[in-house]
């Protein structure tokens, strides 16, 4: 197992997801992918659901991956990786494997391919108990097709299918809590992560890869195009999300043992996180103050809930 102690040593890793892909400048997807694939020295088999990551890293005839890579439809990244894993297990049992080196299986999906469209495949693969890691790149909407809403979009956000205006204040529904849903499947390791906290994400990815069984990481991926902020602010927006507890970092083992992995020293008001993004700018106009209060209330309640759970060890 590779030891991740500090960044100076971690940076000696040869990259396995290289430049030349066509993701937007300042995209957090490639930060997450690099932090995950560099967290292990073992061979990887990666499957990617349709989405920003797939269309940008595999434009014909180019590929950006230095690992084995499968592209599959929007809905079945988890199904494809569970099939590959089952085949690997069968070949190992029959003694027909090409190499003896350990192989890990990773699936990447956007939030559309995880929360909505690919959910039944993910649920099925987790229920069957295949040995893989599923990483959800959560950018809170269908950003590849121009920013439509998904069930991950938080309340009040402006998207093209929940536009802001005189009558509408944007998205009406609150964000679905996919991490708790995956924990309820009884998955041995489930976590949330943010690329702005590189060590947290790399250690969680390593832990998830070492754990046998279906594991899940929900990684927040600030989207510079549709969240409407400057490309250089990606890392700072991720920090704001975690410091304001709008996206708390925690892990759950075996669906029962919750542990908060990062506690902000001083919790900042959620207004600072929302105000940094253009998609929430209408919430600061007159008449919409109640949504900001609602946001703060929801965030505080969820943070209290997590702390209570951690204290009780459930």
């Amino acid at each position: 197992m590779k030891k991740i102690t500090n960044l100076k040593e971690f940076a000696c890793t040869p990259d396995r997801f290289l430049g030349g892909h066509r993701l937007c400048p300042g995209c957090a997807h490639s930060m997450i992918v690099r932090e995950v694939v560099n967290a292990t020295d073992d061979d990887l088999v990666v499957s990617t659901a349709t989405g920003c990551l797939e269309v940008c890293s595999a434009i014909y005839p180019y590929t950006s991956w230095d690992v084995s890579w499968i592209h599959i439809g929007f809905e079945n990244a988890a199904a494809a990786i569970s099939g590959a894993e089952a085949m690997h297990k069968a070949l190992k049992r029959k003694g027909k494997l090409y190499t003896d080196r350990p192989v890990k299986f990773v699936a990447f999906g956007g939030d559309g391919g995880t929360y909505d469209i690919g959910f039944q495949a993910l649920s099925g693969a987790t229920e069957r108990g295949h040995d893989f890691l599923y990483v959800c790149l959560d950018n809170e909407g269908y950003m590849n097709t121009g920013g439509q809403r998904s069930s991950s979009t938080p309340i009040g956000a402006h998207t093209t299918t929940s536009p802001r205006g005189r009558v509408s204040y944007g998205e009406k529904q609150k964000k679905k809590d996919i991490t708790m849903i995956m924990a309820a499947h009884g998955s041995p390791y489930v976590a949330t992560a943010c690329p702005s906290y590189w060590k947290d994400l790399a250690v969680k990815a390593q832990k998830a890869l070492e754990t046998e069984g279906p594991t899940f990481i929900n990684a927040l991926s600030p989207c510079t195009t549709e969240w409407k902020f400057k490309p250089e602010e990606t890392v700072r927006i991720g920090e704001l999300a975690v410091e304001s507890c709008a996206f708390p970092l925690y892990e759950i083992e075996n669906g029962t043992k919750l542990r908060i992995t990062y506690r902000p020293k001083k919790k900042i008001p959620v207004k600072e996180y929302l105000g940094a993004q253009g998609r929430f700018s209408h919430l600061f106009k007159k008449g919409n103050e109640w949504i900001l209060d609602l946001w703060q209330k929801q965030v505080d309640e969820y943070w209290d809930y997590l702390q209570r759970r951690e204290e009780c060890g459930v």
Binding site: L7, K8, F10, A11, D15, F17, L18, G19, G20, H21, L23, P25, G26, C27, A28, H29, S30, M31, R34, E35, P195, W198, T234, V235
Partner: peptide, 11 residues
């Protein structure tokens, strides 16, 4: 410090 290495989206 290698902060730029870990967060550069284009490696």
């Amino acid at each position: 410090c290698d902060f730029c290495w870990v967060w550069c989206p284009d490696s």
